[in-house]
């Protein structure tokens, strides 16, 4: 079942003293098929991250619908919405801020397993699975987020969201803070996982070459509107 947004509009109030409405998204419609990677490009402030947060259910649009399995996610029952949030996961540019700095990686991964409903006796196996998916050395488990590299943190972030076996993954500039050789490792890992699981992806980046490499389709946002939607080769 595709994941779609229909005519999404989003306005914020902006300004330090006098609040002025600002339209971030002005009627955006987009559909992502299962197994497809859609690259989303645009300058800072074009509305890429706002669209990503709306798709992930982290933010509500001012108007418009987000359709998953034919239903509007904001008209779903609570239990259905929770299941949507598990099915559509998000990876951020700075995953370090998504990891608790006071917890070891082992503790953070344990929390993920528990939240997914894994019992105490299955936790070790769950962590092993996450390490295998992310191609991580078990040595990272005893470390804190500030003791490991950006590439390792991004692998942990990927492994963590993939544990929920999402149907769709939204990645907001996942490699922008990484070096090219680490970026290559993460992009190849993502490709392999996608081939194995058939999940759909929305890959946000301002790096043209990265988007062309990873995407089946490239959508460009400019001033809150889709300005083009075409194959990556064009």
């Amino acid at each position: 079942m595709p994941l779609a947004v229909e005519n999404i509009e989003k306005s914020y109030l902006r300004g330090h003293f006098r609040k002025v409405p600002f339209d971030v998204l002005k009627g955006v419609s987009l559909e992502i098929q299962e197994g497809e990677t859609v690259g989303l490009m645009g300058d800072s402030g074009s509305g890429k991250s706002t669209l990503a947060r709306i798709l992930a259910g982290l933010d509500r649009p001012t108007s418009g619908r987000i359709l998953y399995e034919g239903s509007d996610i904001h008209r779903m029952k609570r239990s259905e919405f929770r299941s949507y949030r598990r099915s559509v996961q998000m990876v951020f540019q700075d995953p370090a801020s998504a990891l608790n700095p006071m917890k070891t990686i082992s503790r953070s991964l344990e929390d993920v397993a528990r939240l997914a409903g894994v019992g105490s006796d299955g936790i070790e196996e769950a962590i092993r699975e996450m390490l295998a998916v992310g191609g991580l050395d078990p040595e990272v488990l005893r470390r804190y987020p500030d003791q490991i590299s950006g590439g390792q943190i991004q692998r942990i972030a990927l492994a963590r969201v993939l544990f929920h076996r999402p149907s769709y993954l939204i990645l907001d500039e996942p490699t922008s803070a990484l070096d090219v050789s680490v970026q290559a490792q993460i992009l190849q890992l993502l490709r392999t996982i996608q081939k194995e699981t058939g999940m759909g992806c929305l890959f946000i980046s301002h790096d043209e070459a990265v988007v062309r490499f990873i995407s089946d389709r490239v959508v460009r946002l400019a001033d809150g509107e889709i300005s083009s939607d075409e194959p990556p080769g064009i």
């Binding site: 090219v180 050789s181 680490v182 290559a184 992009l187 190849q188 790096d207 070459a209 990265v210 490499f213």
Partner: peptide, 12 residues
């Protein structure tokens, strides 16, 4: 390093 670039196939 050059081979890791997306335009060169992202070979890590």
């Amino acid at each position: 390093l050059f081979g890791s670039l997306p335009e060169n196939g992202c070979v890590p």
